[in-house]
Design a protein around this nucleic acid. Sequence first.
DNA 1: TATGAATGAGTGTTCATTCAT
DNA 2: AATGAATGAACACTCATTCAT
Lengths: 213, 213, 213, 213
Amino acid sequence: MDKKVKVRDADETKRRLLQAAKAEFAKNGLGGARVDEISERAKANKRMLYHYFGNKDDLFQTVLEQAYLDIRNAEQKLQLDSLEPRQALETLVRFTWNYYLRNPEFITLVNSENLHRARHLKKSEAIKVASRRFVNMVAKILERGEMSGVFRPGIDAVQLNITIAAIGYYYLTNRFTGAIVYERDLMEAAALEQRLQFNIETIMRLVCRPEHF
Amino acid sequence: MDKKVKVRDADETKRRLLQAAKAEFAKNGLGGARVDEISERAKANKRMLYHYFGNKDDLFQTVLEQAYLDIRNAEQKLQLDSLEPRQALETLVRFTWNYYLRNPEFITLVNSENLHRARHLKKSEAIKVASRRFVNMVAKILERGEMSGVFRPGIDAVQLNITIAAIGYYYLTNRFTGAIVYERDLMEAAALEQRLQFNIETIMRLVCRPEHF
Amino acid sequence: MDKKVKVRDADETKRRLLQAAKAEFAKNGLGGARVDEISERAKANKRMLYHYFGNKDDLFQTVLEQAYLDIRNAEQKLQLDSLEPRQALETLVRFTWNYYLRNPEFITLVNSENLHRARHLKKSEAIKVASRRFVNMVAKILERGEMSGVFRPGIDAVQLNITIAAIGYYYLTNRFTGAIVYERDLMEAAALEQRLQFNIETIMRLVCRPEHF
Amino acid sequence: MDKKVKVRDADETKRRLLQAAKAEFAKNGLGGARVDEISERAKANKRMLYHYFGNKDDLFQTVLEQAYLDIRNAEQKLQLDSLEPRQALETLVRFTWNYYLRNPEFITLVNSENLHRARHLKKSEAIKVASRRFVNMVAKILERGEMSGVFRPGIDAVQLNITIAAIGYYYLTNRFTGAIVYERDLMEAAALEQRLQFNIETIMRLVCRPEHF
DNA sequence: TATGAATGAGTGTTCATTCAT
DNA sequence: AATGAATGAACACTCATTCAT
């Protein structure tokens, strides 16, 4: 019994540390994040952080890896294969937008990782597997759409994926400078909805044959 | 002559410091940048940095402000008003892509500024003026294209601007994680050219009436 | 036992830091004191100083506060209430002189605090309480002496306190310039004894009715 | 003509530098004073400061020396020899108080010098001469008063001088901590007047025979 | 005489990490 | 498993002083 309790506590501590780390890394980047702040937020001893995760860098890697696996998992749950191509595409665009919107840490983590030239992600095999599955999923939609004549032929799945991500990601990651440059509150409800519609339109016009949008 | 040398020295030092700061901030972000590294790179005494720019934060603000003014200036030089709408739009897409490609510091600076919630940009009046002019420029192209019947009506200039930026910016800022996720070298010449073409296509299909692309 | 050692170590470090800080602040003032010197003298890591005391300013405040509480405590231990008024007054004059003489840091700390317009002392509630008790103590002696007819009536307790302090404090704080101006070694035993007698005489003649000194 | 103008300018610059230095040293002490601040306040080039005064330490010495000579000079102007002893003594007490009150820099300079163990004053021969004259002046008053029977015999001129200074100096130099300890505004007009009266009383009772105060 | 750019040693402070228990 | 004291290297920033003209 004692052992079980202890084990559960240990897992709890790990979980809290990861959650706190995610928040701190997202807020301040890898360099700006403070190990003290993380352990404090997690109500755990700083030593535990090192015990479970090695060091700050390894902790960041764990957080980042988990963040990528989370989104890839969520995408799989959309079951786009069971929708008709146009529907599947729009669903993906909506999902991507909403995921970024509701998980702003993901964006900051990815930005931080790119500032560090993806040196953490490189080490993760799991990410590569999940990524491949994701790209294939979109490729399959494109194939189906092309076959049925609703989509234009010859669209590159990778380019499409990048564009779907880009039009949501950029808007959100640059919302602070954007607010100044464009003199608008980019984050109010109406603006967000308008942007989603614009993004759907962008992708549909890009992918579908003219007679199908 | 004597006087000129003196004056030139001071200005030269300032210039070298700014250049070094830009490189260092771009490489490591605001938090990760090292003041020692900047002054060393500029072959200037650290004290001069504080003498001319106040402190690290103010230096970052100066660098960032200059970076924004530089791109806004370059855009104005395109003289899009003298081109026909389709041509003007494509020119803008190409320019934006190439500018990001050849000035990668700009992207990292903007990312860093957004991590800090645009607290430096907020203070700059010059940026606001230049931004307004930029948005108006694109709005005018849209207007002209709409009038002449090549562009669809009702396209929001801000949304279009954001999208043109997004599809280039995202690809380049996330080139390191992208290389892993998509298992491609995103930076080789062919890939870059392919991306540019894809972006032009994306924007043309978004903006032009079907019969005009 | 083990636990005790740990606890003792932390407290010991704090104690050593405070002691070293007191010496360094007394020797060089707040501005002139060196944090490195303090931690070195205390044989503690500099980081500990910040861990326990926040920063240099807060450390100074702690040292100063303790110094004030120490003298106020020592005064209370004199139990002047149990002595007859003349005896109590002389005891206080002697004590004040000897305390300044044996705790020269107190004087320098107070000087430093006044150079900084008492901005640290202002924050201390404990000092205010102790001060009030001290002033009341002297007021009570005056009252008793007045009632019994040995003291002149109408003497202000605050003015008296200030004078008792002044005639010792000034002599000692200005002992270096004083030695030059007066061409005497003000710190040799005979000189110190002479000054104490002079101070007792000054206060007695000020406070007592002529027939009682 | 040109030369004269230049000479006058040079003297002016020196004067302004000295004045600015006095203010800065008085405000922040020797260690806390900033050379930049001094030259800025004097609207002179920093290099001039070094040209005229050597370095910060030498500048402090000059300022301090001048401050001492100023007060010694002012004392001589009182012409106490032409007053009867009691009158002369009271005049001195009043003068000392008022001088400290109106020249608060003097006090801070002296405090600073004592923090540095009078290492600057030691070097000044002029101070020694002026000091001797000052002490003699008071000794003469004491002598005259003793001879005429109004003053008690055997009073040490040095001790008396120190006490006259002490009761004013201490009150003013410790006015910030004093305000907190005594819970009074020590600097309001009524308080200052009350203190002066108290000080006169203190000295008169100390020096005069009982039947003469 | 006057100037302002330049310097290097230092100053308080912060950080990720390890030690001792 | 968990804790909190301890560390040393690094960091942004400051200073009195000198150089070059």
